[in-house]
């Protein structure tokens, strides 16, 4: 193997999102009182930072799956509806059938995986554009979830299940463990097996990948199934958190947060790159913005506007035109030195 010269830090792909997140946190620590304080209460950690990570868990989970799909030049718009479906199934199983915990967790995940499979088959076998294929489930999925709960908000009491959303393990919120587990698992699959290479090659040039012997269809379907599973897990967390399946609000608009998180993380919408750490940082950036606004008493409505502006700015940084201009600028400085 030839020895590669290490890339300059700022040229590394995950540098920008992580740096932006760090900057946000530092600014917050300096400007917002108590932001950086983490204290131990009843044997678990409390504090704004912990809260950011805890609240950001659903979007982080979705971002993991979405990164893969987007890296393969796809997109999954249906994740919010799948969350609602999984939550509805779980709540119904507890409230109506009083099912054991294993069933309550497993069945919604199977439903979510089936939804992902459906998306994947529409994209690969039927050859639909990903936006359209997943739009169908986005439109219909929430309707199906409403039909499952009968249009009601199903509430329940089941401490063991609520642990998913509100519990803590070794002082750390359980949601964080879930995110870490899923990320490590998927990250290991991507970096320790050839799968990561396959995924990026499909996004880079699907035809070339197929001719090189990559099983394009199978891998694409697997990507959508994984995204479905992540959405199912996120739905379980959201449902366990509020002890109810609020189908009309569960995961509403979250697909947009997840896509923005992935794009903020440096995964190009035109495929060929998968930046999972960046996507997680992206999700945390969004959540930090929201939490900061809340702590400073600025309404949620301003958060929307600021999110929009931040997203556009970050996308701008990633465009070739802007990059070129930046590099010319930096190059000039080097010459001057």
């Amino acid at each position: 193997m030839t020895k590669q010269t290490p890339l300059a830090l700022w040229r590394r792909p995950t540098f920008w999102p992580v740096a932006l997140l760090a900057l946000l946190w530092l600014l917050n620590a300096a400007l917002t009182p108590n932001f950086a304080r983490i204290e131990v209460r009843d044997g678990r950690l409390f504090g704004s930072l912990i809260d950011v990570i805890h609240r950001g868990a659903p979007v982080m989970l979705l971002a993991v799956g979405m990164t893969l799909v987007i890296a393969m030049r796809g997109i999954d718009l249906s994740v919010g509806s799948v969350m609602a479906m999984a939550g509805a199934v779980a709540a119904q199983l507890i409230a109506v059938h009083d099912a054991p915990l294993a069933v309550v967790v497993a069945v919604p995940l199977v439903v979510a995986a089936a939804a992902g499979l459906w998306n994947g088959l529409l994209v690969t076998l039927a050859g639909m554009q990903p936006i359209v294929a997943t739009l169908i489930l986005l439109v219909a999925g929430r309707g199906v979830a409403q039909l499952i709960t009968g249009g009601q908000i199903t509430t329940f009491e089941r401490p063991a299940f609520q642990f998913l959303g509100t519990g803590a393990l070794l002082g750390v919120p359980f949601t964080l463990w879930l995110v870490a587990g899923v990320t490590l698992l998927v990250g290991a699959l991507l970096r320790l097996t050839p799968l990561g290479l396959y995924v990026e090659s499909i996004g880079g040039n699907e035809r070339a990948a197929r001719l090189a012997g990559v099983r394009v269809r199978a891998i694409k379907v697997a990507g959508y199934v994984l995204t479905g599973l992540c959405a199912g897990l996120a739905g379980l967390i959201a449902t366990a958190d509020i002890k109810a399946a609020d189908v009309s609000n569960c995961g509403l608009y979250i697909e947009l947060d997840a896509i923005l998180a992935v794009v903020l993380g440096g995964t190009s919408l035109s495929g060929g790159r998968a930046r999972m750490v960046g996507a997680l940082a992206g999700a945390l950036i969004m959540q930090t913005l929201t939490t900061t606004m809340l702590m400073r008493g600025i309404g949620q409505e301003y958060a929307l506007v600021i999110k929009a502006v931040v997203a556009l700015l970050v996308c701008l940084i990633y465009t070739p035109r802007f990059r070129g201009a930046l590099q010319r600028l930096v190059g000039r400085e080097v010459h001057a030195a």
Binding site: I259, L260, L312
Partner: peptide, 13 residues
């Protein structure tokens, strides 16, 4: 997709 998504957040906000 991204631009109009941002536009959607912006206008709603």
């Amino acid at each position: 997709f991204i631009v109009t998504l941002a536009g959607m957040f912006f206008a709603r906000g």
